[in-house]
Write a protein that binds this DNA or RNA. Structure first.
Lengths: 205, 205
DNA sequence: ACCTGAACACCGTTCAAGT
DNA sequence: ACCTGAACACCGTTCAAGT
């Protein structure tokens, strides 16, 4: 019922236009239904044609992941980072992951292969650099793992809700999702400050 | 080259024995190669026979997820929770997720459907209950999201390493994985304590 | 209670060949 | 430079039928 070959005016495609259509298709149907064959149909070409543009589906997903993460602004200002700065950095990463359906899962699946890692890592590290005395990269890594875990669980819940099963998970007892996120980030920040005040008391347990 | 029907001595299977074989197969070949057809071959039966035991592959994965999470000890002692108690609670969840190949991903995929949620949630909440004045469930949710994100990224990296691409990710600049985990948990704990001392100063930004 | 056999509607990927 | 056509080796799932 949809029009075929709708991404471009010309009959032929390149890496970028294919990625654009793939990203839209992902948002429409979700990751489990994003198949090479379905994407090819959407583009009005044969499935095999996709392998001229990409070596594999995994590589296509990597290109999608980079598009998703490109929403993260790299630097706003470089004065001393306030609580609000760190919070907005964390939010910008979360927002990028949540902007497209199953975005967090796509990014996760490509993350270890190196797609768009620099951007996310750099964003957090730079804002934490002039804040944490304990070690900006430990703090950045921890915060990033929290953000990714958060986004994955949020989208996982959306996935379940769209399957009819309503709120089987128990943790919606705690207010709305985004304020829990903010609280989580602030927990981190206070932890960093506390670690700066009394350092080296948490190495062994 | 492997022996067929190796999970049980009797010729027929039940839900539990199928789950056991599936869990072992998961650990051997990983989630992408854990197919219903391959599992059936491993059990020495036809693929269709699996649908007598489970309604769908998703339901089978749910059973696997519950097995994985059953490694989490529920309660050790109920005195006042020290730093070490919280840390060991977080570790026990992480260890369960990391105990089997792709365990974190399996748990994530079943999490929103309610498999084994109570166990993980309860473990953290109970230990944080008599610690955080700010709200044990916010703290538990945040910590849980961190633990899941951590485990997913660790296994994602293992996945990438087994594909030959060695250390493309940048965050191994920070020591070994498990000490970064511990540091992350401690960051949380200090944040909780700090929030208890100066409450209500982080609501709006 | 547990399983077979056959079928349906799909996958990702390769490769020679076309324009 | 970009695509077709045909094939290969797979998927999850259903369903009548067997024991």
């Amino acid at each position: 019922m949809m029009a075929e070959r709708n991404s471009d005016r010309s009959g032929r495609h390149d890496r970028d236009s294919v990625t654009t259509t793939a990203l839209r298709l992902l948002d429409d149907v979700g990751l489990p239904d994003l198949s090479m064959r379905r994407l090819a149909t959407e583009l009005g070409i044969q499935p095999s044609a996709l392998y001229w543009h990409f070596d594999s589906k995994q590589q296509l997903l990597g290109a999608i992941a980079e598009r998703i993460l490109s929403r993260i602004p790299l630097e706003e200002h470089d004065e001393i980072a306030t609580d609000a700065d760190v919070l907005s950095a964390a939010r910008s990463i979360r927002d990028a992951l949540l902007a497209y359906r199953d975005g967090a899962e796509v990014v996760l699946s490509s993350y270890a292969l190196g797609f768009g890692v620099d951007r996310t890592q750099a964003r957090l590290r730079s804002v934490l650099q002039r804040r944490a005395s304990i070690g900006a990269d430990v703090a950045a890594t921890t915060l990033l793992q929290f953000v990714i875990g958060h986004a994955l669980l949020v989208q996982q819940r959306l996935h379940a809700e769209s399957l009819g099963a309503t709120h089987l998970v128990g943790d919606d007892t705690t207010g709305d999702v985004s304020s829990v996120f903010d609280d989580g980030v602030m927990l981190f920040l206070h932890g960093i400050d506390a670690a700066a005040k009394r350092p080296e008391d948490h190495s062994e347990v």
